[in-house]
Deep mutational scan, measured.
Amino acid sequence: TQVHVDGVTYTFSNPEEAKKFADEMAKRKGGTWEIKDGHIHVE
């Protein structure tokens, strides 16, 4: 599962880990995350 944050791609083999990471990054940025085309995007 790929997580895209500010133009950087992080790859996780476990989708649950990817979601936890996205959640943390979104909180830090004061933003949100969503799943697009099977990838997670942090806004």
Score class of each variant (00 low, 15 high):
H4R: 04
P15F: 15
G38I: 03
F21C: 12
V8T: 10
G38M: 04
H4M: 07
F21K: 00
I40F: 12
D23I: 13
K20F: 09
G7F: 05
K36E: 10
K36A: 10
P15D: 11
S13P: 11
V3W: 01
N14P: 00
D37G: 06
Y10D: 01
R28N: 11
M25S: 05
E34N: 06
H39T: 10
P15V: 14
Q2M: 13
Q2D: 09
F12Y: 03
F21A: 03
P15H: 12
M25R: 04
I40Q: 02
K29E: 08
H4G: 01
K20D: 09
T1S: 06
Y10P: 02
V42C: 04
R28K: 13
E17P: 01
Y10E: 03
Y10T: 05
E16W: 09
A26I: 14
I40D: 02
K19L: 13
N14E: 11
D23M: 12
F21R: 00
V42E: 02
I35G: 06
Y10R: 04
K19A: 10
T32I: 13
R28S: 13
V8I: 12
F12N: 00
K29P: 05
V3N: 00
E34L: 10
I35A: 06
H39G: 07
V5S: 06
T1A: 06
G30L: 05
D23Y: 08
H4C: 14
A22Q: 02
Q2A: 08
P15Q: 12
T11K: 08
H39V: 15
H41R: 07
G7D: 10
E34A: 05
K29G: 11
K27V: 08
P15A: 11
D23G: 07
N14S: 11
A22F: 02
H4S: 05
D6S: 07
M25D: 02
T11H: 12
G38F: 03
G38N: 06
R28M: 13
K20L: 12
D37L: 04
V42N: 02
K27L: 11
N14Q: 07
G31W: 09
I40P: 02
N14R: 04
V8W: 12
E24L: 11
H41I: 14
E16C: 13
E17Q: 09
K27H: 08
T11G: 05
G7Y: 05
K29H: 15
F21E: 00
I40K: 01
T11R: 07
D37V: 02
A22R: 01
W33T: 10
D6M: 06
T9Q: 08
T32Q: 12
T11D: 08
K19V: 14
S13D: 13
E34M: 06
Q2F: 13
H41T: 11
V42K: 02
G30D: 07
V42L: 07
T32R: 14
A18W: 01
T9F: 13
K36L: 13
T11L: 12
T1H: 08
M25A: 08
V8D: 10
G38H: 03
E17Y: 06
F12V: 01
E43H: 14
P15T: 12
V8F: 12
T11Y: 14
I40Y: 13
A18G: 04
Y10M: 04
V5Y: 09
E16D: 12
K27R: 12
N14Y: 07
G31M: 07
T32P: 04
K29T: 14
T1Q: 05
V8C: 15
T32G: 12
K27Y: 08
R28I: 13
T9N: 06
V5D: 03
Y10V: 08
G38C: 08
Y10L: 06
I40N: 01
A22H: 01
V8N: 10
A26V: 14
H41L: 12
D37W: 05
V42F: 10
G31Q: 03
W33N: 05
I35C: 15
K20S: 11
G38P: 02
H4K: 04
K36H: 14
S13Y: 11
T1Y: 11
E16Y: 09
A26M: 04
D6A: 07
A22S: 03
E43I: 15
T11A: 08
Q2S: 10
K19H: 10
V5F: 09
E17V: 09
A18N: 00
K19T: 10
R28A: 14
V5P: 00
G7I: 01
K19F: 14
T9L: 09
D23F: 07
G30Y: 02
I35K: 05
Q2K: 13
M25P: 00
W33H: 06
E34F: 15
A26C: 14
I35R: 03
G31A: 05
R28Y: 10
V42S: 02
A22I: 02
M25F: 06
D37S: 04
H41M: 11
I40S: 01
F21V: 01
V5L: 08
R28T: 13
V8Y: 12
G7T: 04
T32E: 10
T11W: 14
K19M: 14
K27C: 14
K27W: 08
E24W: 10
G31H: 03
V8G: 05
P15M: 15
T32A: 12
E34D: 05
G31S: 05
A22D: 00
D23R: 07
V5W: 04
D6L: 05
E34G: 05
E17N: 08
N14T: 11
K19G: 06
D6K: 04
W33P: 06
V8K: 13
E43T: 15
K27A: 11
D23E: 13
S13F: 11
Y10F: 10
D23N: 10
G31R: 02
V5M: 11
M25V: 12
G7N: 10
H39E: 12
E16S: 08
I40V: 03
R28Q: 14
V42R: 01
E17S: 10
Q2L: 12
H39D: 11
Q2R: 10
H4D: 05
E24I: 11
Q2P: 06
K20Y: 08
T32H: 15
E43K: 14
G7Q: 05
D6V: 02
H41F: 15
E17F: 06
H4N: 05
H41Y: 15
D37C: 14
M25T: 08
F12I: 01
G7C: 15
